[in-house]
């Protein structure tokens, strides 16, 4: 499961959401603020400022889209998994991602946006999803590295979201986090097995980590200084920990794991800082990140096209299920009459 600490605007020109409550809303606004300040939760039927609603729809739907698109790079490897055991594990993981997408779409729908509208946003390219999936999975070790690093980064991001101020989102995240640790552990273990294999297998692991490491650091989103929406997200209790703090937590947790695994993280600047009691790390290429978000990553077009085709190819199934349900209903009514 994957979220990018996504405060990425869906469409250009919509960089920040204005927060200007009208006078008649002032009292409702005060009550809303008081509840947020008391660390209370907001539920679907409660009054909420339009900007809060919009921010949540954008964030939860981007999160849901990430789950669904995230099935694609791993799905590529189901038919090529090296053993029946790994195949069964991978199917279970990809199925989980589909489930996570569903929990999240359901949470977004409670804000008054229909599933069709949400999917339309994804399929038309208007809505974003985590850019990590716009990179190819070139060898089997990529599947392990995705579990270890991408899911690992996602877990860092998602644990604080379990305390998000919007009830349905936080409940969905609790469910997701419960299922998530299997994803990271299976990936790490798959890599461990390869590291005990031949030199060629060890090289595959190192190659996968080399390609994914920086993309994973970017998953936490732009540096705090360049995240205009972060402060508002914090104010609203949607975001609990800043992008840079989460990134640091991830680096600190991952370095010892890499050591046990026996690979090198591809960053010459990565070293322990005794004064900070954290690892220092090098510069992230944000230009590349934004290029990919804007649709120019190596696989953006392919991923979206695959997703749209899968949806369109499934149209007859949705139609048939509905026709069948209607027929059953008519039959029941006729029998009752």
């Amino acid at each position: 499961m994957y979220t990018q600490s996504f405060n990425v605007p869906d469409q250009a020109g919509q960089k920040t959401v204005a927060v200007t409550p009208s006078t008649e809303d002032a009292e409702l606004m005060a009550r809303f603020d008081a509840r947020i300040d008391a660390d209370g939760r907001i539920e679907p039927q409660d009054w909420m400022p339009e900007a809060y609603r919009k921010t949540l729809v954008r964030q939860i739907s981007q999160h849901a889209h990430s789950e669904i698109v995230g099935m694609l790079p791993e799905g590529n490897w189901i038919s090529r998994a090296p053993s029946l055991k790994r195949k069964a594990i991978l199917i279970a993981k990809v199925q989980d991602e589909g489930g996570h997408g569903l929990y999240l779409y359901s949470a977004a729908e409670t804000l008054g946006t229909s599933r069709d509208q949400l999917l339309e946003g994804l399929h038309s390219g208007k809505a974003k999803y985590s850019s990590i999936f716009n990179y190819p999975t070139l060898n089997w070790a990529d599947v392990g590295a995705i579990g270890w690093l991408v899911d690992g980064a996602a877990i860092m991001n998602q644990i604080p979201l379990c305390r998000c101020s919007y009830g349905p989102y936080s409940r969905a995240m609790v469910r997701v986090c419960k299922e998530e640790s299997f994803h990271q552990r299976q990936g790490y273990e798959a890599l461990l097995v390869m590291m005990k294999g031949t030199q060629a297998q060890r090289d595959m692991v190192q190659d996968a980590v080399n390609r994914l490491w920086w993309k994973c650091l970017a998953m936490f989103g732009p540096p705090d200084a360049d995240s205009p929406n972060s402060a508002q997200g914090m104010r609203w209790g949607i975001k609990r920990i800043s992008n840079d703090d989460l990134r640091q937590k991830f680096v600190d947790a991952t370095v010892p794991q890499a050591k046990v695994l026996g690979i090198t993280l591809p960053d010459p600047d990565l070293k322990w800082n005794e004064a900070r009691q954290h690892y220092d790390y090098g510069q992230i290429d944000w230009q590349e990140f934004w290029d990919t978000v804007e649709g120019n990553g190596p696989c953006n077009k392919e991923r979206l096209a695959t997703r749209v085709k899968a949806h369109n190819d499934g149209q007859w199934v949705r139609d048939a299920a509905q026709a069948y349900a209607r027929k059953q209903q008519e039959r029941a009514m006729k029998e009752a009459a």
């Binding site: 569903l102 929990y103 359901s106 729908e109 469910r175 509905q322 069948y324 059953q328 209903q329």
Partner: peptide
């Protein structure tokens, strides 16, 4: 525990 879309009850 949550919600989902389905065409009918058995689905």
């Amino acid at each position: 525990c949550g919600s989902l879309h389905a065409a009918d009850a058995s689905q």
